[in-house]
Amino acid sequence: MTTASPTADRTDLESETAMTSERRQILEMLSAGKISADEAERLLQLTSGGQSASDGSGASATASAVTSTVAQVLDPKFIRVIVEPDPTASGNHARHHVNVRIPLKIIRAGVNLASLIPNDAGNMVQDSLLNKGYKGDLSKLDASALDELIEALQELSIDATVDNHLVKVFVE
């Protein structure tokens, strides 16, 4: 007959408590609208995977994976743009593959750099952007607006079909 040691029991209890805390955190994020239903499902699957693990180390490893995934969802680091040929499209068209990952830190650094541009040069940039169809005012983009922009980007997810190509834009 085998009995679990007190240390093993305590480890299991700590892992279970951490898992419950993670599930609660995921549900709170979902209700607050910080993550989508798909992301919540993915995270909950990770936690349930940890609960089904037989040993405490597996559960705690999954809990830490969930924590890192939650942190990743709440604090995305990159914008990813993927363009792939639409497999359902017919016809002989050019097939392009694009995979671009842009660090979000570039946006903040770019705004800091842009704030140092002299007024004359800034006006020239603004005119050029207007000519290209961008009607925003770059001079109004400050640190607080930037924080709002980055926060809004966390919910960014675009799936579109353009010229027989699938275009996906999301943050990760």
Binding site: K77, F78, H96, N99, V100, P103, K105, I106
Partner: peptide, 12 residues
Amino acid sequence: CSVRGLQIEIQK
């Protein structure tokens, strides 16, 4: 420094 992590792959 913020450019670290940039990845661009284009195939045409």
